Computed example of a mutant assay.
Amino acid sequence: MRTYILTVFEKTGKKLLDESFQAANDEEAKKIGDARLTKEGFNEHTFRCVSPEAKLILFHR
């Protein structure tokens, strides 16, 4: 399993969510990250999800 980091920001730059989670690969991480964003209602906020190599998996500005 690999560790991914999901971060959500307000327009002011304040972090609303900053957490790590485990996924087998980038595709699974996209699904997990998207589900977490939907659950918390953060789909329209600025967010990013990065892989262990710092590759952007999900991004919204």
Results as ranks from 00 to 15, higher is better:
residue 13 G to A: 03
residue 46 T to Q: 12
residue 10 E to P: 09
residue 48 R to W: 03
residue 7 T to G: 03
residue 11 K to W: 04
residue 54 A to H: 13
residue 18 D to S: 08
residue 19 E to I: 15
residue 13 G to T: 06
residue 57 I to D: 04
residue 2 R to W: 08
residue 16 L to H: 04
residue 47 F to H: 15
residue 8 V to A: 08
residue 27 E to D: 12
residue 27 E to C: 01
residue 37 L to E: 05
residue 46 T to F: 09
residue 5 I to E: 12
residue 7 T to W: 07
residue 14 K to Q: 14
residue 34 D to G: 08
residue 51 S to Y: 08
residue 19 E to N: 01
residue 45 H to A: 10
residue 34 D to Y: 12
residue 14 K to A: 13
residue 26 D to T: 07
residue 48 R to P: 00
residue 47 F to T: 08
residue 57 I to L: 13
residue 26 D to R: 05
residue 46 T to E: 13
residue 35 A to S: 10
residue 59 F to I: 13
residue 54 A to D: 15
residue 53 E to T: 14
residue 30 K to S: 09
residue 42 F to D: 07
residue 44 E to D: 13
residue 2 R to L: 09
residue 8 V to F: 06
residue 56 L to K: 15
residue 56 L to F: 15
residue 29 A to W: 03
residue 40 E to G: 05
residue 47 F to W: 14
residue 29 A to N: 06
residue 24 A to N: 09
residue 49 C to K: 06
residue 24 A to D: 05
residue 29 A to H: 03
residue 41 G to H: 02
residue 54 A to P: 04
residue 58 L to M: 02
residue 28 E to N: 00
residue 16 L to M: 11
residue 60 H to I: 14
residue 21 F to Q: 00
residue 41 G to K: 09
residue 31 K to C: 09
residue 18 D to N: 12
residue 53 E to W: 06
residue 50 V to F: 10
residue 43 N to T: 13
residue 23 A to W: 00
residue 9 F to Q: 00
residue 44 E to K: 12
residue 11 K to A: 11
residue 20 S to Q: 09
residue 2 R to C: 00
residue 4 Y to C: 04
residue 24 A to V: 04
residue 27 E to G: 06
residue 47 F to Y: 15
residue 33 G to R: 04
residue 40 E to S: 12
residue 48 R to V: 07
residue 10 E to L: 13
residue 31 K to W: 06
residue 14 K to T: 01
residue 51 S to R: 11
residue 13 G to S: 05
residue 54 A to W: 14
residue 22 Q to N: 15
residue 59 F to C: 07
residue 61 R to S: 14
residue 12 T to F: 04
residue 17 L to W: 00
residue 5 I to F: 13
residue 54 A to R: 14
residue 12 T to K: 10
residue 10 E to M: 08
residue 23 A to K: 01
residue 3 T to F: 08
residue 14 K to F: 11
residue 25 N to T: 01
residue 30 K to L: 12
residue 59 F to W: 15
residue 19 E to C: 10
residue 58 L to A: 02
residue 53 E to V: 10
residue 21 F to T: 01
residue 32 I to S: 03
residue 48 R to L: 04
residue 16 L to F: 00
residue 2 R to H: 10
residue 42 F to A: 11
residue 50 V to S: 02
residue 25 N to S: 03
residue 18 D to M: 08
residue 12 T to L: 08
residue 15 K to T: 12
residue 40 E to W: 07
residue 7 T to Y: 07
residue 56 L to M: 12
residue 25 N to P: 04
residue 61 R to C: 13
residue 24 A to F: 01
residue 45 H to E: 13
residue 29 A to G: 05
residue 49 C to M: 05
residue 10 E to W: 07
residue 51 S to D: 15
residue 14 K to W: 03
